[in-house]
Amino acid sequence: MIFKKPIRIGPTKFKIFQWMMHIVILAWLILVFYQGLTDQLGGDPVQSLLDFTGIGALNLLVISLVISPIASYLKFGQFIQLRRPIGLYSAFYALSHLMVFIAFELQFEMGLVLSEIIDRPYITVGFTAFIILSILAITSINNIKKKMGRKWFTLHSLSYIAVILGGIHYLWLVKSAWYEPAIYIIVSLLLILLRRKKLQKCSNSACMFIYTVLLYMHTTWIYRQRAPL
């Protein structure tokens, strides 16, 4: 690894690559919404959109988290620049996911939106992940980032919690096909393992927070295992 040459791409080529990434991620989302509106999304367009945006958010989040390890392994510094936009797109996909849920799945029955978030452990977990992603998205504005200094890195290590919560959300909503969500959870745990040195530098308060989240997840898991109503 020490002998490996750093990778560098010409700035124009890299710009083109970045633009392609933006176009693909955005155009895909727009196209799928367009298909939904024009009844070209199969039997249940609402379900298809929920699935597309949910999987999209989770995939983008995982991709944003594997960028650092890959970049440092390949000594490909420029690659890191993709981390922020992809993380932001993950938050944006998660926002569209929530909007589909509110507007099309529950058709603006706001009381039900609230009770679903509280009563259904898998939605509670997904919503928690969404809140984390939103906070991370807002604090990724440059000015805020500068003001926060070191705290910023601590805060943004919550993305590892978000990806685990996303995986658990997925695991709890499937009826029986648990393999795919399990793969996401395993990959997330591997990522945490890879980054454990960096993550250990987080302050005590972050550790406390993470511990609280884990405890809370554990209780919801027990709740999920309870006898049926």
């Binding site: 799928v32 070209q40 199969g42 298809s48 999987i55 999209g56 983008l60 795919e180």
Partner: peptide, 29 residues
């Protein structure tokens, strides 16, 4: 018509970074 659109989407999808999951959905994934 729907199948054709799916095919085109598939083509777009394969070239992109978003990995598809065949899990719970028909359509673009």
């Amino acid at each position: 018509q729907r199948r054709d659109i799916l095919k085109k989407l598939g083509y777009l999808g394969a070239g992109s970074l978003l990995a598809a999951s065949g899990s719970a959905s028909a359509g673009p994934l």
